[in-house]
Amino acid sequence: MPDIFDAYFAQQVINGISLGLVYALVAIGFTLIFGILNVVNFAHGEIYTVGAFAGLLLIVGAAPPLLAVVLLVMAVGAAAGVGLERLAFRPIRRFSDEASLKSRAMREATLLSSLAVSIVAREVMAHVFGGEMRIIPQAALLQDVITLGPLTLTNGNLIIFGASVVMLGGLQFMLYRTRVGLSIRAVSNNVLGARHVGIDTNRTIVATFAIGSSLGAAAGILVGLYDGNIYPYMGFAPGIKAFVAMVMGGLSSIPGAVICALLLGVSESVATDFLSSGWKDLIAYGLLVVTLIFFPQGLFGHGRERV
């Protein structure tokens, strides 16, 4: 029955695009922060969880319309990102000269301090909210079925699609059409150069964290409402997948990260056609290792200076 198979296949592609867009939103935060600081922010997955829980509390407490929830969650995410930067990144950062910028010890210390903060954040959330999944009010779920010929969508698919496109477009506008975006691009290009022309690097880094984290937090609440469960450890898997997408995309290329995130999402969900669902995680890691071996700079990356 090729007919049904095709419909099923199209269905999987659509689910994959939703999944991929979520990975993309998380990956952008990773990529922005990596681009500007050259370190991996391990606490990014926890920002996603913070977003989901903030949204849940809002919905349970006040039940505002979805748009308000997403905007408020983005604000919470931005605040969490700024706090994270203050706590885990700034005390260790030394942007004074060439040597400290390239210091491996400094980079590893930053990586591990973000990791330590992420452990603390996750355990605090597990303690406050309990380790098990939380029930979300039925009305807030994004699981209304929309039938489109042979395809069954939920409004969650459409909302994730719309919201992601708007946020990605907004990000591109901000990076290329505003002064903040210009300073972010300047700092990620060359920190010392940016300082010489009078850019406040600390403020720019804080802005980067705020933007990246607000996107991650928005992804958290959208996925929470779409999947129907929110729990303290939910940030781990999307965090890893987004990390994979960032590396495949070439570490500091935002379009590259988005394309690779979509690729990952679609291939994972199409793979369930011919693999049992447990093996689908292997796809992401397999793609990662293959990309690294054959395209060591990522699919869309430029050659990087060896340090």
Partner: peptide, 28 residues
């Protein structure tokens, strides 16, 4: 053998991928 050409963070990411692949294989 294939990953030793990678440097710094790329090698770290490759080992992360390998570690997760081992875990997924043990699980499935």
């Amino acid at each position: 053998l294939p990953t030793m050409r990678l440097i710094s963070i790329y090698f770290a990411v490759a080992t992360l991928g390998v570690g997760e692949m081992i875990h997924v294989s043990l699980l499935n």
